[in-house]
Amino acid sequence: MESLLESIRVFSSETSPLDFYLVLQNWSLFWKGLQNTLLLLVLSLIAGGLLAVPLAIIRATRVPILNPIAYGFIYFVRGTPLLVQLYVIYYGLSQFEAVRDSAAWVILREPWWCALIAFSIGTAAYTAEIFRGAIEDTPRGEVEATIAAGMSRVLAYRRIILPSAFRRALPAYGNEVIFNLHTTVIASTVTVIDVLGAARTFNNKYYLAYEGFITAALIFIAIVFVITRVFNLMERRMLRHLVRA
């Protein structure tokens, strides 16, 4: 057993183009990275989703005054790189003494929280446009039915329009989740140890060029695979009425 392990180690470090044994020895680093990546992904999706629903309703129903503001916000967020948005929040805000003296400084000086804020804003803007399209595509008949049943506007949105829109938005939202996963690697540029941050730390520690990045790439492919599967299952369940016989 000992000699087998030893020969695997020797093969890994001397013959194989990738030192996979070294990667396995540092699994706790990558595990920590994976936890941070998933935490940033899930929390930003929740915060962004909560922000996206009112934005989408404002846009779809063209609420006066608020609609142009929402559109401006969405255009600005979607028209500029997330990396720079994160730099503005993390490095930029510290320029102002008022920010450094405020209570929010506890959060704004932490790269992890800044990354979460930037990702939430980003995914909110993209998700809002997806939801807006889905709300605008609500069949006229469904809206008429809510009026005929005497529902108030709020009740109609809560019971009929939003649930039906969420279902229609599901395939596009699945893409947005994967897209958001990809953008979380930007956290590594402000020293957060996410999957890519772990890969960069690992490569620097052992002076390697590709082992860490390839490991990171494989981890991301695995996560994307799982997300795709989950969304396929959800679509099959929630869009069952649309499946052709």
Partner: peptide, 22 residues
Amino acid sequence: TIVRGVPDLVVMLLLYFGGQVL
């Protein structure tokens, strides 16, 4: 499939650092 699965920054760092060594 690979490009869709792997974040762009990972591809970039892999090509830049890995490509150089290779």
